[in-house]
Design a protein around this nucleic acid. Sequence first.
DNA 1: TTCAGGATGTACT
DNA 2: GTACATCCTGAAC
Length: 207
Amino acid sequence: MARLSRGFYEGDTVEIARALLGKFLVHRYDGVPLIGRITETEAYVGRCDKACHAYNYRRTARTETLFGPPGHAYIYFIYGMYHCLNFVTEPEGEPAAVLIRAVEPVWDTELIRRLRFGPSSGAMTAYQRKNFLNGPGKVCKGFSLSKAEDGVDLTGDTLFVCDSPADLRLSCPEITREQILTGPRIGVDYAEEARDFPWRFRLEKED
DNA sequence: TTCAGGATGTACT
DNA sequence: GTACATCCTGAAC
């Protein structure tokens, strides 16, 4: 599977957040590839964004990964029980990242379901379908991502993004501007003027 | 169907 | 001590 190269992550964070929509997130979990199509992202830019953990270049143990080279995973712990997955962007020294807010399960759906909801048998319930991976904490739960994966290199073999997981004969359909909904980010009301930045991107539901 | 409230630990003041 | 890039539960409609 041809994964996105380091160069992809080096550019403008807002552009990258848009460009990631429709691509496939892959985590090799215990030898099994867990794959999901990215449907919602948010951009965070330390240089100018009060909602970013590393706003104004504030550097702490937690945000260290954000200052490193692009193309690495930044995973942090929040609200005492959840993790959030981000991809570090922009050149080393510029703390910025794209938060992965939602994903559609592609493979191995049953395994992701067990990781997400615990042992469950039978058909998916309506509740499970609706609340599968539609939030950053849920994405990490379903893909088994935690602090252990913080800092992982996205050009490596365990965690990466690709345009088309060829093994599954899937390709990334061309995403048009019209399919992308843009709006303010979630849960950043405290961030003064940055609360209104239109840095949240999601794909229209197809159904 | 929507909504309020609680869970829970770490980072930072 | 407070706030947090969240999610789940249960009550009321």
